[in-house]
Simulated assay, not measured.
Amino acid sequence: MDASGWEDDTWILHDLTVPIDLADREEGPRIRRRWCDVTDEDLGAVSKARRWPPNAMYLIKNLRWPDIEVEEGVFGGESLAALLDVVGEFSRPDAACFAYYGMVPANEYQSLTVLEGRLSAIDGLTGNEDSFWGLSPSNWWPADRSWFVWTDYDLTATRVSGSRELIETVRAHPQLETLDWQWPEGSRTPADRRRARG
């Protein structure tokens, strides 16, 4: 689900990792790398020119590093921890939050899957292969609806919407790599297409 009407929003690129020991690429330890350091793509140009939200299909075209790994639909690692720090400044860590899993991540096509808990528990809802296929919640937000997070199961970026102050704090965080991206003028957003279908 998507939501509009926020003062500002930005996209956080999901963590990507590379192996530390190239002799053990599959099982060995990995380290995070920043997108701007591993691709020849101009991320600023990408944010202005592409028709679809940021994802690996075009960001990994010209990689300068072997064995890049980034999971679609999984917003976790250092980036999730950093975002939780930021939103924790605007909503208490024990603030009531909701997490919605879309039909595909929840593997549930007859009813909505919405979990309720504390903001500090959101981290526990991701990366568990035994539930929701290890995917992140499609949306999560506090009870006061002061901000909104949207992740899609086939993207490698997550959008955060909220006040200008919150989004500026997200953009400025040293652990977060963000892109400002909007639907191109004249194109129709997923919400527009759903309304057109009635």
Rank of each mutant, 00 (worst) to 15 (best):
residue 174 P to Y: 04
residue 59 L to D: 04
residue 80 L to G: 03
residue 187 S to H: 14
residue 107 N to E: 14
residue 53 P to H: 08
residue 159 R to T: 09
residue 177 E to D: 09
residue 197 R to F: 03
residue 87 V to F: 11
residue 110 Q to F: 11
residue 140 W to G: 10
residue 4 S to P: 02
residue 160 V to D: 01
residue 19 P to H: 06
residue 188 R to A: 13
residue 181 W to Y: 12
residue 127 G to Y: 08
residue 185 E to Y: 05
residue 75 F to K: 00
residue 129 E to F: 06
residue 128 N to Q: 14
residue 132 F to I: 08
residue 120 S to Q: 11
residue 108 E to P: 02
residue 91 S to M: 03
residue 42 D to S: 15
residue 98 F to G: 04
residue 63 L to Y: 04
residue 31 I to E: 15
residue 184 P to Q: 12
residue 113 T to Y: 02
residue 68 I to V: 15
residue 48 K to S: 13
residue 120 S to I: 07
residue 97 C to Q: 07
residue 149 V to T: 11
residue 63 L to I: 11
residue 66 P to M: 04
residue 2 D to M: 08
residue 137 P to E: 07
residue 87 V to C: 03
residue 106 A to E: 13
residue 81 A to G: 03
residue 144 D to I: 08
residue 64 R to P: 01
residue 15 D to I: 00
residue 50 R to D: 06
residue 111 S to P: 00
residue 173 H to W: 04
residue 107 N to K: 03
residue 101 Y to I: 03
residue 3 A to Y: 07
residue 47 S to I: 01
residue 56 A to W: 09
residue 159 R to H: 04
residue 98 F to N: 07
residue 41 E to F: 12
residue 154 D to V: 10
residue 36 C to I: 01
residue 77 G to Q: 02
residue 99 A to V: 06
residue 86 V to E: 09
residue 12 I to Y: 01
residue 29 P to Y: 10
residue 45 A to Q: 14
residue 161 S to F: 08
residue 75 F to D: 01
residue 70 V to R: 00
residue 181 W to G: 05
residue 181 W to F: 11
residue 82 A to M: 05
residue 142 P to S: 08
residue 7 E to Y: 01
residue 122 I to K: 10
residue 85 D to S: 09
residue 7 E to L: 07
residue 190 P to F: 08
residue 151 T to M: 08
residue 155 L to V: 06
residue 151 T to W: 00
residue 33 R to V: 07
residue 67 D to Q: 04
residue 58 Y to H: 12
residue 117 G to N: 09
residue 108 E to T: 09
residue 164 R to Q: 07
residue 28 G to K: 10
residue 78 E to P: 02
residue 171 R to H: 05
residue 133 W to S: 14
residue 126 T to I: 08
residue 51 R to C: 04
residue 54 P to V: 00
residue 20 I to T: 14
residue 195 R to M: 02
residue 37 D to E: 15
residue 165 E to M: 04
residue 103 M to H: 06
residue 39 T to R: 01
residue 152 D to P: 01
residue 127 G to I: 05
residue 42 D to W: 13
residue 121 A to L: 05
residue 111 S to M: 08
residue 188 R to V: 07
residue 44 G to D: 12
residue 61 K to E: 14
residue 13 L to Q: 04
residue 17 T to C: 10
residue 139 N to M: 04
residue 112 L to D: 12
residue 156 T to E: 10
residue 50 R to V: 08
residue 37 D to W: 01
residue 49 A to L: 15
residue 192 D to A: 11
residue 62 N to K: 03
residue 197 R to G: 00
residue 167 I to L: 13
residue 130 D to E: 15
residue 38 V to A: 07
residue 141 W to E: 07
residue 115 L to K: 11
residue 77 G to I: 00
residue 21 D to P: 10
residue 193 R to D: 13
residue 60 I to A: 12
residue 128 N to I: 03
residue 159 R to Q: 15
residue 66 P to Q: 06
residue 78 E to A: 14
residue 31 I to H: 07
residue 169 T to D: 05
residue 187 S to V: 00
residue 150 W to A: 12
